[in-house]
């Protein structure tokens, strides 16, 4: 039954939760290490339902990220569309990877996303961010297995 219709409630729920986690205030020491929750959520749904979630939804999520972070419209959506395209290219193989390898690929993907965003920000305004994005990418990779377990659970509960 659920093969035909995806429960959009779960998708919305996970995206809202990711948005909260993206916004919630962290102590100054921890804030450079915030995982890219929205990007991870987008990648998860791309892998789970590549027929429904695609580049258009990546674009919308990107616009939301632009508003939340106060950057120029289009910066995050551009990066997220590119990452989504890459994910759609490898999703058949990605499912077969063991979790450690998945986490490594996530590190590369979120690294690409952050690199594009930081490069655009540096080009459009003054910025010197150094290598912060590497930390964020590493933490995102470490968070990925937990996120998959939780989201799988949610998707199973609300199928």
């Amino acid at each position: 039954m659920m093969t035909k219709s995806m429960n959009w409630f779960v998708v919305a729920l996970t995206f809202v939760a990711a948005m909260m986690l993206e916004l919630v205030a962290l102590p100054d020491m921890l804030s450079p290490f915030r995982p890219e929750w929205l990007v991870l959520t987008q990648i998860y749904w791309l892998l789970r339902r590549p027929d429904r979630v695609g580049i258009a939804s990546a674009f919308v999520i990107g616009i939301v990220m632009d508003v939340l972070t106060g950057s120029y419209f289009g910066v995050h959506s551009l990066a997220l569309c590119i990452v989504s395209y890459l994910v759609l290219g490898i999703h058949k193989r990605f499912r077969m990877f063991p979790m450690a390898k998945q986490a490594f690929v996530i590190f590369v993907l979120s690294g690409i996303q952050l690199l594009i965003v930081y490069a655009m920000r540096a080009a459009l305004s003054v910025a010197d961010n150094g290598f912060d994005y590497l930390w964020q990418a590493i933490i995102s990779a470490l968070v990925w297995p937990i996120l998959v377990i939780v989201y799988d659970r949610l998707a199973f509960t609300f199928r």
Binding site: I55, A58, F59, Y72, F73, G74, V75, L78, C81
Partner: peptide, 12 residues
């Protein structure tokens, strides 16, 4: 993808 990229660049 190309459409999305063009649209993003226009927005930027």
């Amino acid at each position: 993808l190309a459409m999305a990229l063009i649209f993003s660049v226009i927005l930027i």
